[in-house]
Simulated scan of single mutants.
Amino acid sequence: MAEEFKRAPNHFQGRPLADGSSPWPVEAGRYRLVVSRACPWASRAIIVRRLLGLEDAISMAVVDPIQDERSWRFTLDPGDRDPVLGIRFLAEAYQAAEPGYDGGVSVPALVDVPSGKLVSNDYPQLTLDFSTEWTAHHREGAPELYPEHLRAEIDAVNEVVFRDINNGVYAIGFTRDQAAYDRRFNRLFDRLDELSQRLESRRYLVGDTITEADIRLFVTLVRFDAVYHGHFKCNLLKLTEMPVLWAYTRDLFQTPGFGDTVDFDHIKRHYYVVHDNINPSGIVPAGPDLSGWATPHGREELGGRPFGDGTPPA
């Protein structure tokens, strides 16, 4: 039995590039972003798209949080079909790109509307490209989420956050080995403690504005008490019991573009119903109490400018 949970690599890595060197042009209306509001990897793309104002350039489809044997499905739409792509299952776009493909079907997925083919499920690169390749379609006042002079530091923070936190909660939740669980559990809370110390005197992870690093950490923290604490056995502390990280996450949640993209109903139903090997009863817990997300966080005292020289999304 495998000791460690291994995340499969992203098989489709097409990239629309602004310089025309890719077979996929950067073109408004050409692509459709398929997401699940339950999925933290997809939530990154939802937030970045909204902050940059790419809604008119890249349309978005939201799948049902409950998958069946064919994975993500468009049962939230009339006729159980995506109205733009005309398909019932995201797997159809994967098959259009690679006939006979039998690997995993994941979100976020960028689909070429004219051909119906999947372009990319490479979630780490997708949001960086939204910031760097789609600048001609950013809204006026769009923030710099991946500023060039901070990229090395952002990349370094992202690497650690992915390994020990974003992916770490999954490594804990899906392991079947006690020693592996103990090791990843300790690493997760050691890293959360380090980030608490980092954020105690600074409002954001890198620089004095919101960057890609904050978005990547936020999508895990916002799900922590609702699913990871109990469902994935990450139960040393709740987020609400970590004062700095709880205030930091509330600060982001109350920032336009963050909390208004979060759907706790989708999040809880997906994890507790789909992961029947972890939760065989399929019962979705009633808690936690969500009222605390609207309470004052006091992080403004640390300074910082959420959008830098830009403005909030409408």
Rank of each mutant, 00 (worst) to 15 (best):
1 M>I: 12
2 A>F: 10
6 K>S: 10
8 A>N: 12
8 A>R: 14
9 P>D: 14
10 N>R: 13
12 F>Y: 03
17 L>P: 01
24 W>G: 02
26 V>F: 03
27 E>I: 06
28 A>G: 10
35 V>Y: 07
39 C>K: 03
42 A>D: 04
43 S>G: 08
44 R>T: 09
44 R>Y: 07
48 V>C: 08
50 R>Y: 10
50 R>F: 06
50 R>N: 14
53 G>H: 09
56 D>Y: 03
59 S>R: 08
59 S>P: 01
61 A>G: 15
64 D>M: 04
65 P>L: 09
67 Q>I: 15
67 Q>T: 15
72 W>S: 04
78 P>N: 10
79 G>R: 10
80 D>V: 05
82 D>R: 05
88 R>V: 06
89 F>S: 04
91 A>Q: 13
91 A>G: 12
92 E>T: 15
97 A>F: 04
98 E>D: 14
108 P>E: 00
109 A>K: 02
112 D>C: 12
112 D>G: 07
115 S>D: 05
116 G>W: 05
117 K>Y: 01
124 P>N: 10
127 T>S: 15
128 L>K: 15
128 L>V: 15
129 D>L: 13
129 D>E: 15
133 E>C: 09
139 R>S: 01
140 E>Q: 06
141 G>W: 01
143 P>L: 10
144 E>I: 02
152 A>R: 14
153 E>Y: 09
154 I>P: 12
154 I>D: 09
157 V>T: 07
159 E>C: 10
163 R>D: 13
165 I>V: 15
165 I>F: 11
167 N>P: 05
167 N>S: 14
173 G>C: 08
177 D>L: 01
178 Q>M: 12
183 R>G: 02
184 R>F: 08
184 R>V: 10
186 N>I: 05
187 R>A: 14
187 R>G: 00
187 R>N: 07
188 L>I: 02
189 F>S: 09
190 D>M: 11
194 E>W: 07
195 L>V: 09
197 Q>T: 10
197 Q>E: 15
204 Y>M: 09
208 D>H: 11
208 D>A: 13
209 T>E: 10
211 T>S: 13
213 A>P: 11
216 R>G: 06
216 R>I: 11
217 L>M: 12
221 L>C: 04
221 L>V: 04
222 V>G: 02
223 R>N: 01
224 F>P: 00
229 H>Q: 00
231 H>T: 03
232 F>A: 04
236 L>V: 10
240 T>F: 02
241 E>K: 02
242 M>P: 09
245 L>G: 03
246 W>V: 06
246 W>Q: 09
247 A>Y: 08
248 Y>C: 06
248 Y>L: 04
251 D>S: 14
252 L>M: 11
252 L>Q: 05
253 F>N: 13
253 F>W: 14
254 Q>F: 10
255 T>L: 12
255 T>D: 12
255 T>Q: 13
257 G>M: 01
260 D>M: 01
265 D>R: 03
266 H>L: 00
272 Y>M: 00
274 V>S: 02
276 D>Q: 05
277 N>T: 01
279 N>D: 05
282 G>M: 00
282 G>T: 00
288 P>A: 07
290 L>A: 14
294 A>T: 07
294 A>H: 13
294 A>Y: 06
296 P>V: 02
299 R>I: 12
299 R>Q: 11
302 L>N: 11
304 G>R: 06
306 P>R: 12
308 G>N: 03
312 P>G: 06
312 P>H: 03
314 A>R: 12
